[in-house]
Simulated scan of single mutants.
Amino acid sequence: MATDDTSAKAIEEAKDERLQKISPLRKALVRPELGAICGVIVVFGFFLAVAGSSGMFAPEGIMNWGVVSAQFAIIAVGACLLMIAGEFDLSVGSMIGFSGIIIALMSVTLGFPVWFAILTAFVIAITIGALNGFLVIKTGLPSFIVTLAFLYILRGLTIFISISTTRQTIIGGVRDVSEGDPIAWLFGGKILKGLFVWLADLGVIDKFVAGPRAGEPVVDGIPMLMVWAIALIVFGHILLTKTRFGNWIFAAGGDSVAASNSGVPVQRVKILMFMFTAFCATVFATCQVMEFGSASADRGVLKEFEAIISVVIGGALLTGGYGSVIGAALGALIFGVVQQGLFFAGVESSLFRVFLGVILLLAVILNTYIRRMITGER
């Protein structure tokens, strides 16, 4: 008995020694969010210096880049979980335009209640997401090819449906038919309006001095778009880090064969992740339709690549099995700050695309270095 106790103690001490050999620096370097955190610090520091006096960090300026960051974050969460599971979805951008047209067409042109149009759009989008996943699993084709095909299929269908029914690619009037709708507010409403009125009365937030909104605060609430972004980030983070299903996602992307042999339902995990990506794209589309009061067949162009870039900046590996929802959210924040920061700094907006290319290249190089540290490759 004493021998068993001594052996157990020796094993524990050996474990402790192995743990102590891992330096804090190495632990920090293998965190997926490291690059994104550094990027956030650099970007905020830069724009504080060059655009801090232009109102970028005033309440209305914060709301501007906050909304843009939330847009990126909504689709980045879905893309992040799918990429960690080892797959891509290039149809996200087309799904945004497709879902928006479905909502506007059903509610404005066909006269269905807005809540029914929204639910229908979600059902159709999630079904298409499941079809994407099913085709990837059953055919063995790369998800890049399957979803690239759906990128064109959905974009073509969106334009065809819009033109064949309304003779135009933009369908307006959604705001009028959504008045009083029980679900529309969840995507186009605002919360904490009373708080912002109170802050305006205290002088913390400016008020409009002329026009129909004279006396009202320039920031009158937090859009539901931002609420959705925060909710999806929290949900995705908890799912990935606190649940068994999250472990399955990592396993499916790390080594699907080994995971399957260990009892992980790899096929089901991947199909569900394609469905969740489609869900996030439809949330984005619905919020846009409610915000602008219209849908356009060309909305969502290149959003799939912006979502992937946000995830890569957040530390996810292109090979799957490694990543972080928090990192993807920070990547989206970087996008939003830079896109609006260039405007506040008076810089040509086309340079935003230059930034995307540069930051993607740097992120891939950093992630490759991290992967080699983890795996011991040279």
Score class of each variant (00 low, 15 high):
residue 5 D to L: 14
residue 5 D to H: 12
residue 7 S to L: 15
residue 11 I to F: 09
residue 13 E to C: 05
residue 13 E to A: 15
residue 16 D to P: 00
residue 24 P to C: 10
residue 32 P to W: 06
residue 34 L to R: 06
residue 35 G to H: 08
residue 36 A to N: 01
residue 39 G to S: 04
residue 39 G to I: 03
residue 41 I to Q: 05
residue 47 F to S: 04
residue 56 M to N: 09
residue 56 M to I: 12
residue 58 A to P: 04
residue 62 I to V: 15
residue 76 A to N: 06
residue 77 V to Y: 00
residue 82 L to Q: 04
residue 101 I to R: 07
residue 103 I to M: 11
residue 112 F to E: 11
residue 114 V to P: 04
residue 119 L to G: 12
residue 122 F to K: 07
residue 123 V to E: 00
residue 124 I to N: 09
residue 125 A to N: 06
residue 137 I to F: 12
residue 144 F to L: 13
residue 148 L to D: 03
residue 149 A to I: 05
residue 150 F to T: 13
residue 152 Y to T: 15
residue 153 I to W: 03
residue 154 L to R: 00
residue 159 I to M: 12
residue 161 I to Q: 12
residue 168 Q to Y: 11
residue 168 Q to C: 09
residue 172 G to Y: 11
residue 172 G to P: 13
residue 172 G to V: 09
residue 181 D to K: 00
residue 184 A to P: 05
residue 185 W to D: 15
residue 186 L to H: 11
residue 186 L to P: 06
residue 191 I to A: 13
residue 192 L to W: 07
residue 194 G to C: 07
residue 195 L to T: 14
residue 200 A to Y: 03
residue 206 D to S: 12
residue 213 R to I: 08
residue 215 G to I: 10
residue 217 P to W: 11
residue 222 I to C: 03
residue 223 P to K: 02
residue 225 L to H: 01
residue 225 L to I: 08
residue 225 L to K: 06
residue 227 V to S: 04
residue 230 I to S: 01
residue 232 L to S: 02
residue 233 I to Y: 05
residue 234 V to A: 14
residue 237 H to Y: 14
residue 248 W to K: 11
residue 249 I to D: 02
residue 259 A to H: 00
residue 260 S to G: 15
residue 260 S to R: 15
residue 262 S to I: 08
residue 263 G to W: 00
residue 263 G to V: 03
residue 265 P to S: 08
residue 267 Q to S: 13
residue 268 R to Q: 09
residue 269 V to N: 01
residue 271 I to H: 07
residue 272 L to I: 11
residue 273 M to C: 14
residue 274 F to P: 00
residue 276 F to C: 06
residue 279 F to K: 07
residue 280 C to S: 07
residue 284 F to T: 01
residue 286 T to M: 05
residue 288 Q to I: 08
residue 292 F to W: 14
residue 296 S to D: 13
residue 312 V to S: 05
residue 320 G to M: 02
residue 321 G to R: 03
residue 324 S to G: 05
residue 326 I to C: 03
residue 327 G to R: 02
residue 330 L to Y: 09
residue 332 A to C: 05
residue 334 I to P: 03
residue 343 F to P: 05
residue 344 F to K: 02
residue 345 A to Y: 02
residue 356 L to A: 08
residue 358 V to D: 08
residue 362 L to I: 14
residue 368 T to M: 11
residue 371 R to E: 09
residue 378 R to L: 10
